[in-house]
């Protein structure tokens, strides 16, 4: 029971950090530019596919560096030549544009790489068990994922809070107009933030591809969860995104591991259980089956109690 809890927690943390890699970029982009980027998860998918393709010619490790750079460059181009032009038509136009980009990327991926999932494997050197508890092994690759995510965050946190560029970005989050009037090239700052956010999403794809699967639907699968995380954490808040990511990561992972249903819980508490009757299905549904719904239930709850999200300043 203890190993189950520990493994659930660890797996939850890994998933949570992955979610944070995706949600941090998304929440920053929303905070600065007011754009809800539907194509964000598409950059995640491109990261995985680029790494898979690059991995055929170069090794996993150069691909780990190159793929996010390629995705980031693509993101910057999308901002510079797409989003920036659409900006003057308003937020709805921007949303539709990013939605279009998302659909486009999904179709192009299928055209280039085909529909079946790709066997994008973790590098052999990381294919061992980091430690074992009872019968379960915690793969070293997951430890690696955690390490990369934490490392990236410490680096970004340092840049954000201690460099002049980071200060400019912080100020542009609240007063982009004033930052421009002080002489800083705010449009270029937007492009850089969009590019870095996309590169982060791509990096998440590079390291998650082997674990979560590399297939054309991968953007859709994670896309909505990332939105839930960002809304719960509060649009524009990095702290909120961090806490919400870890919370949802742990909740989702733990729930899937819990094969409990209302019926078995009631029985173990000694309460009478009616095997037949109209509500019998409800008794038999397990938490594991309900797990995918949990983030959305939490979302509805948070929106009812606190519409700006946990740390947000704008109404969602």
């Amino acid at each position: 029971m203890l190993e189950l809890a520990l493994f659930s927690l660890l797996n939850g943390l890994v998933f949570g950090m992955l979610l944070f890699m995706l949600s941090s970029g998304l929440t920053l982009i929303f905070g600065m530019m007011g754009v809800l980027n539907f194509a964000h998860a598409s950059f995640y998918m491109l990261g995985a596919y680029f790494a898979y393709t690059l991995g055929a010619s170069v090794d996993f490790w150069p691909a780990l560096l190159l793929a996010p750079l390629l995705v980031g460059g693509l993101g910057a181009l999308v901002e510079r030549f797409g989003l920036r032009r659409v900006h003057r038509f308003g937020h709805v136009a921007e949303l539709i544009f990013t939605f279009g980009v998302a659909i486009l990327v999904e179709e192009v991926v299928q055209l280039v790489w085909g529909r079946p999932a790709k066997s994008y494997e973790a590098p052999a050197v990381l294919d061992f068990a980091l430690f074992r508890l009872a019968d379960n092994a915690f793969p070293a690759y997951k430890g690696f994922m955690l390490l990369v995510a934490v490392g990236i965050f410490l680096f970004l946190f340092g840049v954000f809070t201690r460099t002049r560029a980071g200060l400019i970005i912080q100020a542009s989050l609240t007063h982009p107009g004033m930052v421009a009037m002080l002489g800083h090239n705010v449009p270029r700052v937007f492009m850089v933030v969009f590019g870095v956010g996309s590169a982060l999403a791509g990096l998440a794809g590079v390291i998650a591809g082997p674990v979560l699967g590399t297939f054309p639907g991968m953007a859709q699968v994670l896309g909505s969860i990332v939105f839930v995380v960002v809304v719960i954490g509060g649009l524009g808040s990095l702290t909120g995104a961090f806490i919400a990511s870890l919370a949802i990561g742990v909740i989702q992972t733990s729930a899937v591991a819990l094969d409990l249903s209302l019926g078995t819980t009631a029985a173990s508490l000694g309460l009478p259980v009616d095997g037949g009757g109209a509500l019998q299905d409800l008794w038999r549904v397990t938490i594991a089956q309900v797990a995918p719904m949990l983030p959305y239930l939490l979302l509805v709850l948070v929106l009812i109690v606190r519409p700006t999200g946990l740390f947000g300043t704008r109404e969602t």
Binding site: T174, G177, M178, A180, M181, L182, P187
Partner: peptide, 24 residues
């Protein structure tokens, strides 16, 4: 010209609501 280009030419602006960056 866009505001940042005008500022770089040497024109300064102090807005009515001050626009201090509150977290900095």
């Amino acid at each position: 010209l866009p505001p940042y280009a005008i500022a770089r030419k040497g024109l300064g602006y102090v807005p009515e609501n001050r626009d201090i960056f509150p977290t900095l």
